[in-house]
Design a protein around this nucleic acid. Sequence first.
RNA 1: UGGGGCGUCGUCAAGUGGUAAGACACAGGGUUUUGAUCCCUGCAUUCAGAGGUUCGAGUCCUCUCGCCCCAGCCA
Length: 562
Amino acid sequence: MDADIKKGHFIESIITEDINNNKNQGKVVTRFPPEPNGYLHIGHAKSICLNFNMAGKFNGRCNLRFDDSNPTKEKQVYIDSIKSTVNWLGFDYGTPLFASDYFDRLHDFAVQLIKKGKAYVCSLTADDIREYRGTLTEPGKNSPYRDRSVQENLDLFGRMKAGEFGEGEHTLRAKIDMTSPNINLRDPIIYRVKKASHPRTGDQWCIYPMYDFTHCLSDALEGITHSLCSLEFQDHRPLYDWILDELETPCHPQQIEFARMNITFTVLSKRKLQRLVEENHVQGWDDPRLPTLEGMKRRGYTPSAIRQFCDIIGVSKKDSRIDMGLLESCLRDDLNETAPRVMGVLKPLKVTIENYPQDRTEELVAKNHPQKQEMGTRTITFSREIYVEQDDFMEAPPKKFFRLGPGREVRLRYAYLVTCKQVIKDPDGKVTELICTYDPATKGGNAPDGRKVKGTIHWVNAADAIDARVNLYDRLFKDENPEQNKQDFIENLNPDSLETLASCKLEKSLGEAAPETVYQFERLGYFCLDSAHQGSTDILGDHPVFNRTVTLRDAWAKLKKK
RNA sequence: UGGGGCGUCGUCAAGUGGUAAGACACAGGGUUUUGAUCCCUGCAUUCAGAGGUUCGAGUCCUCUCGCCCCAGCCA
């Protein structure tokens, strides 16, 4: 009775009510049941968070169970990847479970069904089975094998298991109703012959249970109370219940369906992601532009940002496409709190401070976080030659431009006020260098005479800057909904989703960066060391590679557009 | 033209017959040595549409419209 705290989404309401009614002795057990046939993506994260959070909220348990009943699609590498990804997200699932661990019991359940006269071996070909199934508007017809005796079924099923038959020769079917308006109930196949080696059971089996048979029973065997799945399984629920009603199982879990997530400017189906990878539109499953969790991790997404996002989007049964901006907002929220600030120049423009002594180098103190004292400070160096951002200089600046221009004074963050005295160009008219003067009285950035400078820009000392390569990522697709109008989503790819800058200059402290740490390059965005390129020197020389995780909000960019 | 679902702000989403939360986005303004952060302010007389029941309807009833899913020996 103490569970009626504020109700959340509809699933939480159902669970709360169940607890209040002492259903399942007030227990909550959920599960996240991926098939190990690919890598996890942000859509899976929604399900993972939902299942683990519901269990956590009600002092229950959430199992990680691999739904590995089709050996032709499943691989150990996926199992390993999924396990580590769920861990990375921050969830504790204890020992991973496998549907394949229940193959013996599942087989016994099938035998039970045969003995009850509720399942039969069908010897129709795949084509015939489809033919007999009927259509959406027409009922199906009974298989000619539907009335085989229990004895004959037992014998045939035993021989299927013994490997006497080839694939496709026989199937085991549940005997339900070939005229049901729900096609899933038209004698669904529950076992098929597959002469395939399973990643975990090897060649022990040559018959494998189908999803509908496996899933409900696995749930029941594990004592799952609430089996949460996506909307497309709604039509399967009667079958889920039928099987559990026909068999004697430890419990009868409740299947509840919710809408899977979609996000603007990306795709989330395994099939589409696979095409992107296989056709080399991206550089692998962990490409930082992909919504795969491995890609997002490499991009610099944090587990807590992803969890926050999953919390905030809610759970309902409505088809939705969530604004990518919301994901980015969650990311920035988290990173703003945790990311140490540093300075880096992406497109360097050399600046010589003509009145600064040739041989001098000063050490300045910079804050690692403007609002968080506890994150400490670091030392940065300053001398006569520095780099600033090309975008921070305009030869003919508009009125609201607060940065460098001929004759203008700006503050170099943590350093001095400098004034642009001269612009040096190459023969093509491209600006190659700025000659400035500094005001020695403004060390730290404040003028004793009290004069105000509107602009503060970032910079890097030329002498000890780190040369780096930086990958700038943008949305993968041009269109909010890449698969709109039935066009091939590939045509909607954003050709500029990756821009690599080869000659960036970063402050010296970044030499010790680790890929797990996301830094804010002040005024630019959040960046992290690319984990895939770490330490590789062949293609990249000695230069580290950083990935831009996400930009900062940019009011100036908006102003510029007007 | 069978069955199962879903329609509340640009996008998510609360709402469980008592007079439309919140978040993101957007628009203004303030603070600021990041045009960041932070802080204010504004942003659905209306809930797909039309009828009806009721003192009262996003919530109940009827009809209409729109969208999604299902005919794998995939999950």
